[in-house]
Simulated assay, not measured.
Amino acid sequence: MTSSTRRPRWILAAVLAIAVVGGGITAAALATGGRAENGVDASAVPQGSIAADTRMGAVELRAADLDGMADYYGPAGIGLDVLERAADVVSLGAHGHELVRLVAAEAAPAAHADAGLFHTAIRFDDAPGLARALVGVASAYPHLYGGASDHAVSHAFYFADPEGNGVELYVDTPRDLWVWEDGEVQMGSAPLDINAFVAEHLGAGTDTGTGSGATVGHVHLKVGDLGQAEAFYSDLLGFAVTARADGAIFLAAGGYHHHLAANTWGSAGAGERPETLGLGSLEVLVPAQADLDVVAARLTDAGAAFDETAGAIVVADPWGTVVELRVAG
């Protein structure tokens, strides 16, 4: 082993001690598919009517233990930077961009059958950055690890945070290897070994900053009905449906595999969300005011209630989840 690939023994030992447990958090119901040998047929990739450069912004979580949750998402855990800290709010992110906003709240935990958050998925720019985050959070919170999957479009590792909110940490595979068939991206759920991933990638990169190269890649929601979810997130907001699985749909802008997902795996028939801990709101970032105007026109035509301010639209989905669409800063 050369000096450039030597890794601290205590770091690998902490990760290697983790037992890989199955299921509950991983999206095992994803449709399977192979890899293309001839790249991507661009005409087969759905674009949707929302701007192609649309991406996800911050996810707000209502938290009972603000300090404990901040430790988990911050430098002592996943590795996000603390951008702002007040008595009742902690903002965390990377490179000055907010990814997770924690708000102190006194409420009961969400029930499994409630609509709400399935997981917040934090995407890393490269595998070394993801490996560093895995070492941090798995070393400090090994009991919260839930498993891993090779989804063909991404390599994903699943956790819960200290208050039971789902968390996915992932890196995309090369986009030209994604397979599209009949307008749907083919995603699998093959086994993935966290120990092997860390051993291969830890120390391979040059950027060692905490939280570097991280964004909210997608947000996966629990909903009561897939048809209603599609009508809201696709027909009204403009995301394209990029895949369907048993009890789930996946939606994106600009030919990404998914910026949003919705499932009814434990929440079929759920009504409006009660006031609980967990998901408070989520942000969708569009490139320009004109893109907001297009969404506002669709909402108006549909008779949907929403609030509009300079540079932002705030609207609730059929289960009361607040979605803020705003112009990216």
Rank of each mutant, 00 (worst) to 15 (best):
D172Y: 02
D126Q: 08
L226I: 08
L292N: 11
D114H: 14
G211W: 06
I11D: 06
V216L: 05
R62C: 05
T300S: 15
A115L: 04
P8V: 00
K222T: 03
Q186N: 00
D246E: 15
G280N: 07
A297I: 04
A42I: 11
A252I: 01
T54M: 06
R132W: 01
G311Q: 07
V153T: 14
V135H: 06
R6E: 15
A296T: 12
I25V: 12
L66M: 13
V153L: 00
A302C: 10
G93C: 09
G146E: 14
G247R: 02
A296I: 13
L99A: 11
L144G: 04
H259A: 02
G129I: 04
V322F: 05
A302S: 12
G96C: 05
A14M: 10
A204K: 11
A268H: 12
E184A: 12
A19L: 03
T242M: 01
T32D: 12
L260N: 03
F124D: 00
G213I: 07
A304L: 11
G93M: 09
Q289M: 08
T242Q: 02
L236F: 07
L277M: 04
D65P: 11
A316F: 01
Y158F: 14
L292Y: 11
S49F: 11
R55I: 11
G39L: 04
A240T: 07
R326W: 07
D246S: 11
N263Q: 06
N38D: 14
